[in-house]
Design a protein around this nucleic acid. Structure first.
Lengths: 100, 100
DNA sequence: TTAATACTTTGCAAATATGCATTTTTTATT
DNA sequence: AATAAAAAATGCATATTTGCAAAGTATTAA
């Protein structure tokens, strides 16, 4: 239990839970893991390698994008996805700071 | 990006997402925070202090219990809740190990 | 043993998330 | 300009989660 009471503001609490919710899905975790393991990866590679539907993949990528967990960069007709490690670290730290 | 490809087994991936899903809810985060700040806390205190419905509180506590995030100990008609810090740490480490 | 308190469980409606097929948008190629 | 490929967005059915009220269980106290 924490000795010094730190009141966490509501916005941050909510923001953290948004990020966590985005991570907390089996498919999205798989996708995140795959992006992590392959630098400069495009959507095609993601759904073909993981054996997912294109539209489902795109949907989940949108959720990850909205949560700020991944960044995109267009290269011609391809869109490369990469992980925003800062954001991940941030949310992990948030949990740790929140409960320790 | 990770250099050494570590294949994370599916059970662990799924287990992690279960725990994260349990954490990733504004109300549950509030409850977790409150339990963290008050050692030996009972359900009454939780929902009265946080201004929640009794049954809703109980429901979310069940979710936290099932996920293994909190432990309970009955003391007469009161049930004391405490946080399983090991489990929290475990899931945080899981994310970090999973993506770094 | 009756009543009261603390907590859990259940049933159900409303909200949200998910999966899938289809359409749309963007860019490259011919 | 027409076609093709990559990715996003949309519409809709199904599944899951949530909140709430009511009923059930356990323990204490009168």
């Amino acid at each position: 239990m924490r000795k010094t009471k730190v009141s966490i503001n509501k916005e941050k609490l909510h923001a953290s839970s948004e990020v966590l919710r985005a991570i907390a899905h089996p498919l999205r975790m798989k996708i995140l893991e795959f992006i992590d393991q392959n630098e400069e990866i495009n959507v095609n590679k993601i759904y073909n390698t993981l054996g997912l539907e294109q539209s489902i993949t795109s949907q989940h990528l949108r959720i990850l994008r909205t949560a700020g967990l991944v960044n995109t960069q267009r290269d011609g007709k391809y869109i490369h996805y990469s992980i925003d490690y800062g954001k991940i670290e941030e949310s992990v730290v948030a949990i740790q700071r929140f409960l320790h």
